[in-house]
């Protein structure tokens, strides 16, 4: 994801498809097409401007990779060629899809639980000093304990199914949610709280209409970190004891020195993380279009 500054200014003329003007709000002046088509075009341009830079870098890396393998600097069982990996991805697509689905399921459930638990913990911490004193040390403890160290116990307790992976994903992902949630809820303007009490608002009303929406920018930052960590949690869980999932495939491929499968699996893991991250970003764009980090429109200032 690029910032809107670069998407607005970073395009040079040759980067733009022919006929397109600027990708800013005034594109309509140069393109006398119907508004709907215009919007689609603008969206495409924005998506393109967001994707082309990392895309280019990725292609360059791919070329570098290809050069390394083509020059046979390393034996093929250590570093496979991009072609081999691509072939593996195609050949084993059904098997890989099943395992990707398993890891996705564990990650998403773990992330959602982490988000829920993290938000509830943040609310409790902010609203009750007693609970803050009781909860914060425990939460910190849960954060600093190495998750990989707990994984074997979880497998002993919950078996080879998805449960221990989900628990690990929750454990690893909920800390940033708590921290960002607490920061967000504490950032409420004290004047707004005073105002709210002169309006006779209940605690719940104040929370729902003032504190929670105001905490969203912080919270969403935490959720973005959490979703990428949830993938790590699920995969670590699969390493320790599983009979399905991308982590399991990785161990299998490693044991067989099947480097193509290893690389294909890694690519799928990263793609999963990126896809989930993009989903949370999209949620952010929908939930807090008003926030400074999301503003694109030119303010209509007036002198009064």
């Amino acid at each position: 994801m690029t910032s809107d500054v670069s998407s607005r200014d970073g395009l040079t003329d040759q980067d733009r498809p022919a006929g397109a003007g600027v990708d800013g709000p005034d594109a309509g002046e140069e393109l006398p097409t119907p508004a709907a088509r215009n919007a689609v075009l603008r969206w495409t341009l924005q998506a393109f401007s967001a994707v082309w830079r990392p895309g280019l870098l990725l292609i360059l890396l791919g070329v570098g990779w290809w050069v390394v393998t083509a020059a046979e600097m390393f034996p093929a069982y250590l570093v496979p060629t991009p072609g081999d990996v691509w072939a593996t991805l195609l050949e084993d697509r059904e098997m890989l899809a099943t395992h990707t689905w398993v890891t996705t399921y564990e990650t998403v459930v773990g992330f959602l639980l982490a988000a829920l638990i993290g938000m509830v913990a943040a609310v409790l911490i902010v609203y009750s000093p007693t609970l803050e004193k009781a909860l914060y040390p425990l939460i910190l403890f849960a954060q600093v304990i190495p998750k990989i160290a707990i994984a074997p116990i979880l497998v002993v307790w919950f078996g080879f199914g998805p449960t221990p992976k989900i628990i690990l994903a929750v454990l690893i992902a909920f800390f940033p949610v708590v921290v960002s949630g607490v920061a967000g809820l504490r950032s409420t303007d004290p004047a707004l709280l005073d105002l709210s009490s002169t309006m006779g608002a209940s605690r719940w009303q104040t929370f729902r209409k003032i504190r929670f929406p105001g905490a969203l920018p912080h919270l969403l930052s935490g959720l973005k970190v959490a979703v990428t960590l949830a993938v790590v949690g699920a995969v670590v869980g699969e390493f320790v004891g599983a009979d399905e999932g991308l982590g399991y495939v990785l161990l299998l491929a490693s044991g067989n020195l099947n480097s193509s499968l290893l690389f294909a699996d890694l690519i799928l893991m990263s793609a999963l993380g990126v896809a989930l991250f993009v989903l949370v970003e999209a949620a952010e764009a929908l939930l807090i279009p008003w926030h400074a980090s999301r503003r694109q429109a030119i303010p209509m200032t007036t002198t009064s």
């Binding site: 707004l192 005073d194 002169t198 006779g200 929406p213 926030h291």
Partner: peptide, 18 residues
């Protein structure tokens, strides 16, 4: 306790950004 029969205005407008 905080009074309800009043209107209160602050130095900062204290508006909800969203």
């Amino acid at each position: 306790e905080p009074q309800r029969d009043i209107g209160f205005a602050f130095q900062r407008a204290a508006l909800l950004e969203w």
